[in-house]
């Protein structure tokens, strides 16, 4: 197997996550367990090698916290929307499949956007075109072109939020230019 050299900085988020999972599963955050967890994390990352995820190299915590809170609120809204639609509309619900081209071409951003919009109200990813980074989204209760435009704007806004959190510098500057224009 041809191993690309992975810098420690690139691997650090993975190692921290592995240590956290280890300690959470043991329900024990004592220094000894942390150390042993770190040892196992390094061992696992070396032995079970996977291609590294290309992160943009930045993570904006100040943007991430409000995003997470809004996301949680949207998850709650999504469930109650489904409950309302199931009880009130039932068999008469009308949906649509909408194509949404994304700005970013990085795998992590497309994946994250897909995950987030699968969980917010009224949208679900049906198909992904990786070469043009277009998401095909099934929107529930989309009755006309106006609703479809609203759904498309929703998805683009979600992606903009994610770019502000972990997009690369180029994507960020493109985004600020776009919103300024």
């Amino acid at each position: 197997m041809n191993r690309k050299k992975v810098s420690l900085r690139q691997e650090l988020p993975l190692l921290v996550w592995l240590v956290f999972v280890w300690c959470a599963l043991w329900q024990n955050f004592s220094p000894g367990n942390l150390l042993f967890g770190a040892l196992i994390a390094v061992l696992v990352a070396r032995v079970f090698y996977l291609p590294p995820v290309e992160l943009g190299g930045r993570f904006n915590v100040l943007r991430a916290v409000p995003f997470a809170i809004i996301f949680l609120g949207k998850v709650v809204a999504a469930s109650f929307q489904v409950l309302y639609l199931a009880v009130a509309r039932g068999p008469r619900v009308v949906s649509a499949i909408v194509a949404v081209p994304l700005r970013s071409h990085s795998d992590i951003l497309v994946t994250a956007t897909g995950h987030v919009i699968s969980l917010i109200p009224g949208s679900l990813v049906v198909e992904v075109d990786r070469s043009t980074s277009t998401l095909y989204i099934h929107g529930i209760n989309v009755r006309n072109a106006e609703d479809a435009a609203k759904l498309r704007k929703d998805v683009r806004d979600t992606e903009a939020g994610l770019i502000r959190i972990l997009g690369t510098k180029e994507e960020l500057s493109a985004l600020t230019q776009e919103s300024a224009a």
């Binding site: 998850v75 199931a86 679900l124 049906v126 529930i140």
Partner: peptide
């Protein structure tokens, strides 16, 4: 809510909405 959605929605895609979102919350 998930079960009601499964029973009442007309096609597979809408049922999928019912199966995923309430489950997470």
């Amino acid at each position: 809510a998930a079960a009601i959605g499964l029973l009442r929605f007309p096609d597979l895609m809408s049922r999928m909405h019912a199966a995923t979102k309430p489950q997470v919350l």
